[in-house]
Design a protein around this nucleic acid. Structure first.
Length: 671
DNA sequence: GCAATGAGCGTC
DNA sequence: ACGCTCATTGCT
């Protein structure tokens, strides 16, 4: 009778061994960001393995959760509920991933389940049930790694082979086939029986690097993970990684969490690309996550790119990572010849051809010569809408530069808040008093101009040349090695077969004029990424950059010296008290909520609060809908700051305060 | 003095 | 969104 009553009421008995499950419930509230204890009913004993997905009753609701641990005792004084069910016995939350997610949540003042949402793809039951091939043995090491051209390159490869956790910041030589180099590093790691995670900015880079890796390692050892895969494919590949079948992972952002078995190497390529910053809470950055992961697991790390960020420079200067860079001689022979043309360069004004052509004469000549030699020419232009171009306010004809006839545009508000005059997008000449040559009007209006329009204009300047465009709407991954003008926005530059004969970098003033902490660094990064697609100077490769040659990023490009630029950049930021020399957090929200949070916040020793300042448009009385405050501390107080912020947020969420605040640590955009 | 009722809070 | 605690209320 007792047994029937129990069965009817669904009464359950706890498992005999380790009857308590510690569960992270999928409720993204700061004050609930800790494990809760549940009893494991004996029917679920076998399936309730550490790392599996479960469903539990939490505050009267059925919610998803992750079982992180089975234990024998609980600290909880009240009655424990039972696990409702085990969603799947697949242990998706590996111990390493659990530790990493906890660390990332703590680092960014976020909560663990938010990190897990980024790290673990949604379940796909059919995929989970599929049979998978047995893991393959270690492949032989590659015969040539191509790392010997770098003074510390060979040592780094040896460290990977010996499973030492070497850490390096690598600036690829300007002619480098970087996918081949990274694939070689992954192959060396794989030969030692270890896994590699390689994170690149976008899908095109995934394709290139994946191809390079499979060429060395075979298709069954390498998986490509990117956000645009369908749910089934995504989960299938992710599971192949988790189950230890694929030991080399190539992917975008989310792949930074890929739970590769026995990791031996983590790589982030082009760490300055803002695609490496996750836009969802808690806003982790690939470089920082991989640094943390390398530290936590004793794995080798490579922070790589043509350019070098201030953050990477800090890793070098603090002694945490070695710098791997080619010698000056190697760089000189590998780089294209770079010419800077600034507004003050007399050459432009005197040159007769500069007026009749639509480009500065040097740029025109360089492009024409490359086309005549049968090579494609890359033209880098600002993104559509990035800068509004100008037209006559009356007759609508495009407003043109009186010196080179290039299109005029407004550079936007400068760092000092002052409006600057209309500026030529090609030669950078400022035009304070516009007068339309067609109708004589002095009125001027803004129009949206992007790569398409620039392509049209260039097509006319180089009559008869093929013009291809690559940008937001349609991104080309490669172009043939035949004469053509390839107009591309930053980040969308196609690779050219045999390399470009020349590149014209026309967006310098637009990039450098931005009131952004990272304007200089970002400009150099984009320039170098484009210029690296051009043939070496010895093969006729030329780059023309329309920018003042005295500027630090321009000098760094001309000399191809990204390390020097990063030193300058970090020194400058140290002086100003900007990241990464300090740790910063932004707090956004409606004014009352920001004020309440700051009131609640225990700012760590030596820290300071800046603002709050209005965010976005102001109303009639000068009040903003939203405000932003900055909190700044010395680097050693970074953990304390994150802790203080999450504690303050937790007190707010526990009180069910209606207005939420957004907290971000080390955001890319500060102004 | 104490049961009945409801608001608020924590959430196992 | 449940169920517990605790304060308030109303009656003996």
């Amino acid at each position: 009778m007792t047994s029937t009553r129990r069965a009817r009421k669904g009464e359950r008995r706890p498992a005999a061994h380790l009857p308590i499950a510690r569960v992270y419930v999928d409720v993204p509230l700061a004050h609930l960001d800790r494990p809760f204890d549940y009893q494991v009913p004996e029917q679920l004993d076998a399936d309730a393995v550490p790392g599996c997905r479960v469903r539990v009753r939490f505050a009267g609701q059925l919610v998803d959760g992750y079982l992180v641990q089975r234990v024998s005792d609980t600290d909880h004084v009240g009655r424990l509920a039972f696990l409702e069910r085990v969603t799947s016995p697949e242990p998706v939350l590996t111990p390493e991933l659990a530790e990493l997610a906890r660390g990332v949540a703590d680092r960014y003042a976020g909560c663990m389940v938010d990190v897990l949402r980024l790290a673990i793809p949604p379940r796909h039951a059919k995929v989970e049930a599929e049979d998978v091939a047995e893991p393959t043995g270690a492949p032989p090491p590659p015969e040539h790694t191509g790392w010997h051209r770098y003074p510390r390159g060979t040592a780094f490869m040896e460290a990977l082979a010996a499973e030492r956790h070497a850490r390096a910041v690598w600036q690829a030589a300007p002619d480098e086939d970087w996918p081949a180099r990274l694939a070689a590093a992954a192959a060396v790691t794989a030969a030692a029986g270890r896994g590699t995670v390689l994170v690149v900015p976008d899908h095109r880079d995934v394709d290139r690097l994946h191809a390079a890796c499979t060429a060395l390692l075979g298709a069954d050892r390498v998986v490509a993970l990117s956000a645009d895969l369908g749910p089934a494919k995504r989960y299938r590949r992710w599971l192949a990684v988790r189950r230890g079948i694929a030991k080399v992972v190539v992917g975008t952002r989310a792949a930074m969490f890929a739970p590769v078995a026995e990791p031996g190497l983590f790589v982030v390529w082009d760490d300055g690309d803002d695609l490496h910053a996750e836009p969802r809470a808690p806003y982790p950055h690939v470089r920082d996550v991989l640094v943390q992961r390398a530290h936590q697991t004793g794995t080798a790390l490579l922070v790589a790119g043509f350019a070098r960020t201030a953050e990477a420079q800090l890793l070098v200067e603090s002694g945490w990572a070695h710098a791997i860079a080619a010698s000056r001689d190697t760089v000189r022979t590998a780089a294209p010849r770079v010419t800077a043309i600034g507004e003050s360069d007399a050459q432009l004004a005197r040159d007769e051809a500069a007026r009749s052509a639509r480009l500065p004469s040097v740029a025109f000549d360089v492009a024409r010569r490359a086309l005549r030699d049968g090579a494609p020419v890359l033209v880098q232009v600002p993104r559509r809408g990035y800068v509004p171009a100008l037209a006559c306010g009356d007759c609508r004809s495009p407003a043109r530069c009186r010196r080179c006839a290039g299109p005029l545009a407004l550079p936007g508000r400068h760092r000092d808040g002052e409006h600057r005059p209309a500026t030529c997008r090609w030669c950078g000449h400022g035009e304070p008093s516009f007068r339309c040559p067609e109708c004589g009007s002095r009125r001027i209006r803004a129009v949206v101009v992007g790569a398409g329009r620039t392509a049209e204009e260039l097509g006319r300047a180089f009559a008869g040349a093929t013009v291809r465009t690559s940008g937001r709407d349609e991104v080309l991954s490669s172009v043939p090695g035949s004469p053509a003008l390839v107009v591309a926005t930053p980040g969308a530059e196609p690779v050219a077969e045999g390399g470009y004969g020349a590149a014209l970098l026309l967006d310098g003033w637009a990039l450098l004029g931005r009131a952004d902490l990272r304007a200089g660094e970002e400009t150099l990064r984009r320039w170098m990424t484009a210029a690296a697609l051009v043939r070496p100077a010895g093969d006729g490769g030329r780059v023309v950059v329309i920018a003042e040659s005295a500027l630090v990023p321009v000098q760094a490009l001309v000399r191809w010296d990204p390390a020097w630029h990063a030193e300058q950049e970090l020194a400058g930021r140290t002086e100003l008290g900007f990241p990464p020399a300090v740790r910063m957090a932004t707090v956004d929200g409606v004014p009352s909520a920001v004020a309440a949070l700051l009131d609640e916040l225990e700012v760590p020793e030596g820290g300071e609060v800046l603002g709050p300042v209005p965010l976005g448009e102001l109303d009639g009385e000068g009040n903003a809908d939203r405000e932003r405050a900055l909190v700044r501390v010395a680097r050693p107080q970074g953990r304390a700051l994150a802790g203080a912020l999450s504690a303050a947020v937790a007190r707010r969420t526990a009180r069910k305060e209606p207005d939420s605040v957004r907290v971000r640590l080390d955001p890319l955009e500060i102004v």
